[in-house]
Design a binder for these strands. Structure first.
Lengths: 209, 209
DNA sequence: CCGCGAAACGGAGACTATCTCCTTATCGCC
DNA sequence: GGCGATAAGGAGATAGTCTCCGTTTCGCGG
């Protein structure tokens, strides 16, 4: 499945070695400088020429997609764990969104290309995104059947919201509580239910958990 | 107040003319290509050298800030109108956020530098942003005193959310209803109130208005 | 009207980043 | 070991940002 050539001679070992090494270096590089760092700098740090980098990963998105693959698997494992262990559909959806939000924060600046992938569909990131939208729809559907989520909300909107929240997190404003505030805003909104709950209600207040 | 020199000779007319013309061209340029277009291209279209462009506006942010100034005044006018005409604090906050959201969508890609300005504070956009955060806090405060908004939400979070929503709007996903969905998600959340409202309630459903 | 000094202009070019060729080096197989 | 396929390397084409400095234009006083 991951063999390059179908019939011919087998893949050269130096190619595989380079690929792996570039991935290691890029992981480190993106982790410390965000995804906007220079491609040539990655090549240089990996000790290869730019040509080699681009042959392996024709675009920054391709490199990102390869890097995220390992994490994708973690996320899928987490999805399965939630399905298995969390019976309350409301909690399951919340936990899935939490997991998604962590995945999306793997590297600084990641939300941007993910959003682009969602729109254009031509990026190697697009397939992954699409899969996670589908998963979101499933958790959401279950929550909606149980009356735990509003019936007109759609999975793609929740996914986009998660992306947007992660994007906003990049602007912490020297204030560490904003991320939580944004997540709970997405979950419960800013508005109090009209004429149903008393003013000052704790309904929907973000918990420290 | 807007005179450059304090005592000396008066500002050269060609400078003022160039400044105005650059602004006109940049407005048009950003409107059609988004704020990421090449600075040199703006200079060229305006018929000036890059040096002239950069002397007037040392950074892209400075140019943006100058462009937004006119719109800032519109937004402030709208703020005053809402204060004057909308007595219901819930509606007032909603309308203010709507106005803010339109302002933030003036140019494609605007949310990004605004977020950066919010964090760094060194950009010429920062002061403007800060002012609008304050206004948001005022509308929010009024709504909270009336029990129309949840008491722990903060103005800066609402502002950031508005920014994030506008950012996400850039990824319409060939689907025109997402923007509304995101706005109403921010307003009412995805979760149904726990144990208070029947499943399937219309509570918080986005209206077409 | 003219000339002078200050102010502003223009654009060449230094710098950085992306991405592409084409030559050279290396590998897999017999 | 040798041959053909495959990959590596890196110079360089292209594009964008921003600066520096020689040249032009302007405002003002005579």
């Amino acid at each position: 499945m991951s063999e390059g050539a179908v019939g011919g001679r087998r893949q050269r070992t130096d190619k595989q070695r380079n690929r792996t090494h570039i991935l290691e270096v890029a992981e480190e590089f993106f982790a410390e400088r965000g995804i906007a760092g220079s491609m040539d700098a990655i090549a240089k740090r990996a000790g290869v020429g730019p040509g080699t980098l681009y042959r392996h990963f024709p675009t920054r998105e391709a490199l990102l997609a390869a890097l995220l693959q390992a994490r994708d698997e973690e996320l899928e494992a987490r999805r399965d764990a939630i399905r298995r262990e969390v019976t309350d559909s409301r909690a399951a959806l919340a936990q899935w969104l939490q997991a998604l939000s962590e995945w999306v924060t793997a590297f600084d600046g990641l939300p941007e290309p993910l959003r682009a992938a969602l729109t254009e569909g031509t990026s190697p990131l697009a397939i992954t995104c699409q899969g996670f939208v589908t998963t979101t729809e499933q958790f959401l559907g279950a929550a909606q059947r149980d009356g735990a989520a509003k019936p007109w909300v759609r999975g793609r909107d929740l996914f986009l919201s998660t992306l947007a929240t992660a994007w906003a997190r990049g602007a912490v404003m020297a204030d560490e509580s904003s991320p939580d505030a944004l997540v709970s805003l997405m979950r419960t909104g800013w508005e109090t239910p009209t004429g149903k709950t008393a003013p000052g209600s704790d309904e929907g207040r973000p918990s420290s958990a």
